[in-house]
Amino acid sequence: MALVDRQRVATSSAAGDSRRSVRFFNGSAFERAFAGLCLAAALFVLLILGGFFVSLTIGAWPALAKFGPAFVWTTTWNPVTGVFGALPAIAGTLITSAIAIVIAVPLAFAIAIFITQLAPEWLRQPLGVAIELLAAIPSIIYGMWGLFVFAPVFRTFVQAPIIALFDNVPVLSSIFSGPAIGIGMATAGVVLAIMILPFIAAVMRDVIATVPKRLKESGYAIGATDWEVARAIIIPNCAGGLTGAVFLGLGRALGETMAVTFIIGNANRITANIFAPSNTIASTIANEFQEAYTDMHSSALIALGLLLFVITFIVLALARLMLKRISS
């Protein structure tokens, strides 16, 4: 819109006419209608958001009323007896997302720096497009690839050696313990990392591109290395945007459903072992919603959805808070 407006202004002034006479719409009425439309669109988003929250709460109410706040920290998930607690799913969601972020963020930053700073001019465009294409692959493809291709490789070349390595080390032996089955939280975390990597990298690339060229070139001019420019000039200049990219990726990882359902192993248990099968909120819902024919079971699943909503909300709020602190 802004672009069109500017063009219109440009052509009208070039023609030497007054701006108002060329405009098709009469100024103030159109402007007001336009502003009203924008406001309505913005309010509609809020309405949808509020509607989601309200309908989730209503759906979740039977479970929330029965189990109370303990729903969040109890670990039983038993459809037979109708007792439900969300902790295993919450833990699985947070742990897999954490693994994904820890792996994806440094790599994404490196990719973004390479594309914007180091790559030769002719390589930048194709690389950028390739990354955007990666981001567009449907998640179920990642799930299938994860199960049939990645899991066996991960089991043989990563899990088995790590388990053997830490076999007799006190704490590590319980974090990395067998049997190596290739399916579990670690696998899901790594596949999630691969999924969100192009997403984060693409946003970071755009953010880094906004750092003024003269700043970077001044850095190089006083003899700074690539790493020094990245650390002392690029990061401080767009820290807010970079954090935003990370949280966008985190948001996607938290809610990812299909790919995770394929490879996490779908077991409602909490263990310290990150190679063990677990469950996430999204995959529990995907697995059980169809066949949840008692009202309490469906209600508990909706309550899980509400929790995911709240967790995502908290994550975004934290992101805002961090951005504010960085920019001030």
């Binding site: 290739g182 779908n266 077991a267 409602n268 099968p277 697995n287 024919y293």
Partner: peptide
């Protein structure tokens, strides 16, 4: 444990659908 369409499994890994279980058993 009891009897139901889904139960609280004390052990193991869960596959989605008959095919999911077959895939996991083939893999693990």
């Amino acid at each position: 444990i009891g009897v139901d369409a889904s139960v609280q499994w004390p052990a193991g890994t869960g596959g989605k659908g008959n095919q999911g279980v077959a895939n996991y058993v083939g893999q693990i």
